[in-house]
């Protein structure tokens, strides 16, 4: 097991270098001069040339990248073209906001989705089932930013229950959490329902029932643990979607997180910051995927047996 974890973590290293190289190339071949973006349209050609020199932008892309990769090996994410400060501090200042946002989204999603999916499956083809699957379909189809705007108007501006921008208290994360989590909630509820439906038709459920076990107990002790295996995968997959969705949510709710930082930095051609943000997202995404695989083994002894 440990060997497997170590292997996966080691494999992450070349992947991360691949990711940074890829993004470096995209940012470098894309139109737009970082020096011009920093100094503005009024800057003299001399000033731009001088800044390009300072930032090392006149070297071939591969030389620039190798310089960046060398720093990366030492754990140095470089300095921002714009603020001249280390990228790591810029990102570190914004990580808590994005983490709180995605965390509240996934918590809201899971808390609503699993009971909804389980009950919908047990009461298959009833009004409750129809209604909850309709809500789930809405969640899958509704754009995050539209839901976000509607929540913002209704609950922040009209009713004044929550702040409409900023990230000062837990209250600031309720509406963004709902907006961001609604889509994931829908996917998780649908998966839970369909895997639950599959599980409750199994022989061992009938066996448990026929030995006189109460229905609720059969559901919670026998059906649920088995039905949750596909749910875990979907929750893991949702983390990636949530990170992308955080860009939109942070924009709607004016939250100072990594999602907004990355948009500003791409537009300002601040390549080191862009790379830093992508790296953070990629590392979190990869580690979540690894955790999902491990959790899989933990929940399902059959899979665990394959590792050892």
């Amino acid at each position: 097991m440990w060997k497997y974890i170590l292997k996966r973590l080691l494999y992450l290293i070349p992947v991360l270098f691949g990711v940074t190289l890829l993004v470096y190339i995209i940012m470098s071949v894309a139109p737009g001069d970082p020096a011009k973006a920093i100094l503005g349209d009024q800057a003299t050609p001399e000033a731009i040339a001088q800044l390009r020199e300072e930032l090392g932008l006149d070297d071939p892309i591969i030389v620039q990248y190798l310089r960046y990769a060398k720093g990366l090996l030492k754990g140095d994410l470089g300095t921002s073209y714009k603020s001249k400060g280390p990228v790591i501090t810029e990102i570190a200042a914004r990580i808590p906001t994005t983490l709180k946002l995605t965390f509240s989204a996934i918590i809201i999603a899971v808390i609503v989705a699993i009971p909804l999916g389980v009950v919908a499956a047990i009461k298959q083809n009833t009004l409750f089932d129809g209604l909850s699957m309709f809500i789930a379909l809405l969640g899958i189809s509704m754009p995050i930013f539209w839901l976000g705007i509607l929540l913002l108007i209704q609950f922040a501006q009209k009713l004044g229950w929550f702040p409409s921008s900023g990230a000062e208290s837990w209250k600031s994360f309720v509406l963004p959490g709902i907006a961001l989590g609604f889509h994931s909630m829908a996917s998780i509820a649908r998966t839970t329902r369909s895997s639950m439906l599959e599980v409750i038709r199994q022989d061992y459920i009938r066996t448990a029932r026929s030995k006189g076990m109460p229905y609720n107990q059969v559901v919670t002790q026998h059906a649920l643990p088995n039905a949750l295996i596909p749910t875990i995968t979907v929750v893991g997959l949702q983390i990636g979607a949530l990170m992308a969705g955080s860009v939109l949510t942070e924009s709607v709710f004016s939250l100072p997180g990594i999602g907004r930082l990355i948009i500003f930095s791409i537009q300002g051609r601040d390549i080191p910051v862009v790379l830093g943000c992508i790296l953070v997202f990629t590392i979190v995404f990869s580690i979540v995927n690894l955790l999902v695989d491990l959790l899989y083994a933990y929940v399902d002894p059959r899979i665990k047996a394959q590792y050892s």
Binding site: V23, I26, A30, P31, M243, V247, I266
Partner: peptide, 22 residues
């Protein structure tokens, strides 16, 4: 090679490329 692409969350990657290219 695909692993590198898959390591970045898809929509985020699309946002990055679209924003970079204009």
């Amino acid at each position: 090679f695909m692993d590198i692409f898959l390591a970045i969350p898809g929509t985020l990657f699309a946002i990055t490329i679209a924003a970079a290219l204009g």
